[in-house]
Measured scan of single mutants.
Amino acid sequence: MASQGTKRSYEQMETDGERQNATEIRASVGKMIDGIGRFYIQMCTELKLSDYEGRLIQNSLTIERMVLSAFDERRNKYLEEHPSAGKDPKKTGGPIYKRVDRKWMRELVLYDKEEIRRIWRQANNGDDATAGLTHMMIWHSNLNDTTYQRTRALVRTGMDPRMCSLMQGSTLPRRSGAAGAAVKGVGTMVMELIRMIKRGINDRNFWRGENGRKTRSAYERMCNILKGKFQTAAQRAMMDQVRESRNPGNAEIEDLIFLARSALILRGSVAHKSCLPACVYGPAVASGYDFEKEGYSLVGIDPFKLLQNSQVYSLIRPNENPAHKSQLVWMACNSAAFEDLRVLSFIRGTKVSPRGKLSTRGVQIASNENMDAMESSTLELRSRYWAIRTRSGGNTNQQRASAGQISVQPAFSVQRNLPFDKPTIMAAFTGNTEGRTSDMRAEIIRMMEGAKPEEMSFQGRGVFELSDERAANPIVPSFDMSNEGSYFFGDNAEEYDN
Rank of each mutant, 00 (worst) to 15 (best):
L47S: 07
P95D: 08
F230N: 03
T15P: 04
S245Y: 05
S392Y: 03
F412D: 00
Q308A: 12
L466E: 00
G356V: 08
R361Q: 08
G212Q: 05
S335P: 06
S402C: 07
R342Q: 15
L47Y: 11
A336E: 01
E434A: 13
Y296W: 08
D302F: 04
S141M: 07
L133P: 02
N142W: 09
F489A: 00
N473Y: 03
R174N: 12
R195T: 11
I388H: 05
F458I: 10
S376F: 06
R195C: 10
I96C: 11
L259V: 15
R221I: 09
R317Q: 04
V67D: 05
S84F: 00
R121E: 02
M196P: 02
P161F: 00
Q459I: 02
L110H: 06
L108T: 13
A451P: 00
Q149R: 13
S69P: 08
S310V: 12
A387Y: 10
V414R: 00
M159C: 09
T151M: 06
C164D: 00
A260R: 00
L154D: 01
S345W: 04
F304N: 10
K227T: 10
A472K: 09
L61S: 10
I406R: 08
T6M: 02
E64G: 12
N397D: 02
K103W: 01
S170L: 07
T92S: 08
N124I: 10
R243D: 08
N142Q: 07
K227L: 09
E469P: 08
G86L: 13
R389T: 04
L328Q: 09
N124R: 04
A366T: 09
R55M: 07
R446H: 05
V29N: 02
W386S: 07
G94D: 13
E375I: 05
S486T: 14
N247M: 10
S367E: 03
L56Q: 04
C333H: 02
R118C: 14
A22W: 01
S383A: 15
M456W: 14
D128M: 13
N250I: 09
R400A: 07
C44T: 09
E81K: 07
I265N: 02
N395Y: 13
R216D: 03
A366N: 04
G158R: 01
R199A: 07
E115R: 09
W139K: 04
E64P: 12
F488P: 03
P354F: 02
Q20N: 02
G356W: 12
G209M: 06
E369P: 13
F338Y: 10
Q308H: 15
G158D: 03
D240F: 01
R117L: 13
Q399Y: 03
Q122E: 02
T130R: 12
A373I: 06
A428V: 06
E252R: 04
I388E: 02
R213D: 09
V280N: 10
W386H: 13
A428Y: 09
A286H: 08
D51Q: 13
S28L: 01
G362M: 07
L79N: 06
A332L: 06
R199I: 03
T188S: 15
L307Y: 01
N202S: 05
R436M: 03
Q327F: 08
A411R: 08
N319E: 02
M331Q: 12
C164N: 14
C333P: 02
Y296R: 04
